[in-house]
Amino acid sequence: MELLPVIESIVFVAAEPVSPAFILEVLNGTPETGAAGEAAAEPPHLWERPVTEDEVEAGLEALLKKYQDGIYPFEVRQLAGGYQFLTKRSFYPYVRRTVVQKNQKRLSRAALETLSIIAYRQPITKAEMEFIRGVNCDYAVQKLLDKQLIQITGRADGPGRPLLYGTSPFFMQYFGINEVSDLPKLKEFEDLAEDHMDLFRQHQEQKENHGQEDAEPRQERETLLGEGTQENGEEA
């Protein structure tokens, strides 16, 4: 049996992204301890021989390339520091109608704003979130905690040592990123907003120009109608 399909089977059955370290542990096992509490010389590996970390990494890279082929409706992606099988985006509309999804309610605007602040400013206290948003964030923070999109990462050194919040591993899995640095940069949002403003200005200019073009024939018609009415009055 080859090593690649073994690694593939481990990734396939996992409900969460699996790390190379976890795969290595599955294949090689963990050192057994003897009666005296000393580690055994050889771990109970399942593979025909102990597998190295480089071999696992090479196998995962091979899986990434294998499922890029268009014949597969799914792919292996790096998420939250691990690897997981996911349906390709082009098949999402079909899968969406097939799978009964849990918790289909979308995040409120307040929750999304709070989550964005946490994602880009973490670790951050609730007071800092409220200073940025200008409103109380208790409800939004609790909702994000309930959905496991954020987590408490520690305490600040300031007075009262308030709690610090950051994004969770599930946040990265949910949004399809491998690490927080994969999030779009704020400059990208600014450029996108500027592009939208340019399109809006062009649209407004087209409307104004179109309005002026419509106004000229209308003025001509009104002038002609006025002249016609005047002539009819003179004839009468």
Rank of each mutant, 00 (worst) to 15 (best):
P159Y: 02
D198I: 10
K147E: 09
C137L: 11
L46I: 10
I118R: 11
K66C: 01
F171I: 05
K207C: 00
L24Y: 03
E190D: 11
Q206G: 04
Q68I: 03
T33D: 07
I71F: 08
Q202Y: 09
S116L: 04
A39Y: 14
S181P: 00
D191F: 12
P50H: 07
Q219V: 15
W47C: 15
G228L: 07
R109Q: 10
R201T: 11
G226N: 14
Y83V: 05
G166L: 02
R201N: 08
A39K: 14
P217K: 13
T30R: 15
Q84N: 00
A110I: 07
P93F: 01
A127W: 10
R133D: 04
A193G: 03
T52P: 07
G233A: 02
K65P: 00
T52S: 15
Q78A: 14
I71N: 10
A15E: 04
F131S: 07
L112V: 14
N232K: 04
V56D: 13
D54A: 15
R133A: 08
V141I: 14
Q204I: 14
R133S: 08
R133K: 13
E48W: 09
I71C: 11
Q204L: 15
S9L: 06
R96Y: 04
L86P: 00
F91Y: 12
V76A: 02
L199S: 15
E2T: 07
A236Q: 08
T223A: 15
Y67N: 05
L63F: 06
E235F: 03
R77W: 04
E222P: 08
Q230E: 11
I10V: 13
A215C: 04
R97L: 02
Q68K: 13
D138Q: 13
P184R: 02
F171E: 01
D157R: 12
A110T: 10
T153A: 04
K185A: 13
G70R: 12
F85M: 03
K207D: 01
P159N: 03
E61V: 11
L27N: 11
L186T: 09
F200K: 14
Q122W: 01
G158C: 02
E130F: 04
P123K: 06
L145Y: 08
T98A: 14
I10D: 09
K65H: 03
L112P: 00
S9D: 10
V95I: 12
F131L: 12
A119M: 06
E16H: 11
E220V: 14
K102Q: 10
D195Y: 15
D54P: 08
I124H: 07
F175R: 03
E179G: 08
K66F: 00
E53M: 15
E220C: 07
T125H: 09
I152M: 08
K66I: 01
Y139N: 10
K147W: 01
E113C: 06
Y92L: 05
Q142E: 15
I132Y: 10
I10P: 06
A140E: 14
K147G: 08
F175L: 00
R77M: 07
L27D: 08
V95R: 01
P123Y: 12
Q202L: 12
A215H: 03
Q142K: 13
T30V: 14
P5I: 05
N209H: 10
V56Y: 09
P184A: 00
A41S: 09
P44N: 06
A14E: 09
L27Y: 06
E222G: 02
L112Y: 01
L145T: 01
L164G: 02
R77C: 05
V100Y: 06
R133W: 08
G211S: 05
E42W: 08
V76Q: 07
P93H: 02
